[in-house]
């Protein structure tokens, strides 16, 4: 089996937000619906004070409450594929927001209105790429729920070309946020492969999942760095 997971090492993360910008760039960000966000907060009181940095995106839970609720209302816009990736079908999504309500991590982002990046209807060439030429995960629509896809458009290409072993290794088949990190605070790969870098890192760094008490079994692991998160 193949189970794609991510590790975020908050000890190494320096809060630069390159991963956030990379997600925006890679996934046709439109204002108001970020798929990856930097959480930054202070701990302690001057002068004994520190800052913690970490990013939050979709946890791609094994038991995803967003999918459960979407199925429960018979919309079935959210699915989890055989590689462990949770995806939203924009054509089926009705924008009801239940998935956001039940997500313990506040991940789903309702894109109420797709607006241009520069405002005043000034479009960059990237924004003018027609929908039909974009990957379905980049078909931005009004009133549709969006979230991190683990850069499914990249993983899918590796799967379709029998290069699944290059996911997390080769830049063209690796989620862009994990690719651009200047300090190797992010790893992506197959948890079911004991020799993968991400497996090794999760084990040796004693990484954990967030809010385990919800029983969602997230597929994003964190090496925590002081305080909670």
């Amino acid at each position: 089996m193949t189970k794609f997971v991510r590790l975020i090492d908050m000890d190494r993360c320096m809060g630069c937000q390159a991963c956030v910008a990379a997600c925006y760039q890679e996934n046709h960000y439109t204002p108001g619906s970020p798929w990856n966000e930097m959480i930054e907060y202070e701990i302690g009181t001057y002068p004994h004070v520190g800052k913690v940095f970490g990013t939050m995106g979709c946890m791609h839970c094994e038991d995803a409450p967003c999918q459960t609720v979407c199925d429960a209302i018979d919309v079935h816009a959210i699915s989890k594929n055989e590689y462990g990736v949770v995806l939203v079908d924009y054509d089926k999504c009705i924008g009801c927001g239940y998935c956001d309500t039940v997500c313990p991590y506040n991940v789903p982002q309702l894109n109420k209105e797709v607006t241009s990046l520069y405002g005043e209807d000034k479009l960059s060439p990237l924004e003018t790429i027609p929908q039909e030429q974009r990957h379905p995960t980049h078909h931005k629509k009004n009133n549709v729920m969006e979230k991190c896809t683990f850069c499914w458009h990249k993983l899918e290409q590796a799967i379709n070309s029998n290069q699944i072993d290059k996911i997390g290794v080769d830049p063209q088949f690796t989620p862009s946020c994990d690719l651009v990190c200047p300090v190797e605070a992010r790893f992506f790969g197959d948890l079911d492969d004991p020799d993968s870098e991400v497996s090794r890192q999760i084990g040796t760094k004693k990484a954990t999942q967030l809010k385990k008490e919800y029983g969602t079994k997230p597929q994003v692991y964190y090496k925590l760095s002081g305080g909670d998160f």
Binding site: C16, Q17, A18, V20, A21, A22, Y24, Q25, E26, S124, P125, L126, I129, P171, S176, L179, V180, C181, P182, V183, E184
Partner: peptide, 27 residues
């Protein structure tokens, strides 16, 4: 069309491992 900007992996041995948000969003 500039779709993405990634760090050049070959340069890691000599200088940068990743790139910053300005570089990522340079397009």
């Amino acid at each position: 069309i500039i779709r993405s900007i990634y760090p050049d992996e070959a340069r890691a041995e000599f200088y940068n491992h990743g790139i910053c948000p300005k570089g990522v969003s340079g397009s």
